[in-house]
């Protein structure tokens, strides 16, 4: 079969001569636990990434900072002359130190990298630290959000009672009482932006919770059906009436007449109106409602 090397940089040939694959290492003699070998896939990335225990990562970080940080940066993203290791092909392609180990032990004199006399265990810890850095960048669904509460709570309160007209439907001493204690700020922000899921898929009555979307269907003869909307598309509309009876109707253009009422319409309308400051301020205000 044909194969070819791929890489934007001049092909990096890793010399494995005299290298002992670290993957084959035996349990070390110091009594510490083997690094965790469970893996984690998905989360926006395609590869399986090893999950390391905190102790391993802490040791790896300390060693890396002391031994490698001057050239490669304390976070391995590059420093005084050394490349960004989290983007380096030998690190990305490494498995259990098989590529990193020989480079550390032999150095890369042609590039000005000295050799390091580190133990297998130390190299293993450094390798874990680097692989965790790659995983943390690749698996975007795991990115931790920072403190998003930067807004002005007083301005948020004014928006709630004024421009935003939130107080038309909501009360901070009624339905929203204690809301700031119920949700973390990111979830809380998402809740007021769009209380109904992400609002991205087709209408799903199960997502409407206590605020059902209702529909009025008027047949050509004048008979009217009203109730909770179950489904609507170009060809059918379905509802459940007050007695719990399910009704569905074929739609042919404008017949029958269909009027949908969404109690969350104000939230949809606000999406087009919020400034980012409004969003930040309103979040800051709602967070105070403990």
């Amino acid at each position: 079969m044909l194969k070819k090397a791929v890489g934007p940089l001049p092909a990096i040939v890793v010399v494995l001569a005299a290298a002992v694959p670290l993957a084959a290492q035996a349990p070390d003699g110091r009594g510490r636990a083997e690094p965790a070998r469970s893996t984690r896939g998905g989360a926006g990335a395609g590869n399986q990434y090893t999950v390391y225990d905190d102790a391993t990562l802490q040791r790896g970080k300390a060693l890396f900072t002391a031994q490698c940080g001057f050239c490669h940066g304390a976070n391995a993203k590059g420093g005084e002359g050394g490349p960004d290791l989290l983007r380096a092909v030998p690190v990305l392609d490494d498995e259990n130190g098989n590529l990193i180990g020989p480079i550390v032990l032999n150095g890369r004199p042609e590039r000005g990298m000295p050799k390091f006399s580190l133990t297998r265990e130390q190299i293993s810890d450094i390798t874990a630290f680097l692989h965790e850095g790659i995983r943390a960048a690749a698996q975007r669904a795991t990115y931790p959000l920072r403190d998003i509460v930067t807004g002005n709570a007083a301005a948020g309160r004014a928006y709630f009672n004024g421009t935003g007209k939130c107080s038309t439907c909501h009360s901070v001493t009624g339905d929203l009482r204690g809301i700031g204690g119920k949700y973390d700020p990111v979830t809380l922000q998402g809740k007021f932006l769009m209380p109904r899921g992400g609002g991205r898929g087709p209408f799903n009555p199960a997502e409407t919770g206590g605020n059902p979307v209702t529909v009025t269907v008027t047949l050509p003869g004048g008979k009217v059906f009203e109730g909770k909307l179950q489904r609507i598309d170009d060809f059918d509309v379905a509802l459940t009436d007050a007695a719990g009876e399910y009704h569905s109707f074929p739609r042919k253009g404008d017949v029958p007449a269909v009027v949908v009422h969404d109690p969350l319409q104000a939230h949809f309308d606000l999406l087009r109106k919020y400034s980012d400051a409004d969003m930040h301020n309103l979040t800051a205000y709602l967070v105070t409602l403990k």
């Binding site: 079969m1 791929v6 990335a45 395609g46 590869n47 990305l92 690749a138």
Partner: peptide, 9 residues
């Protein structure tokens, strides 16, 4: 033939 390296995502 290999097009690219899967390890690089």
């Amino acid at each position: 033939i290999q097009i690219a390296d899967v390890k690089q995502e």
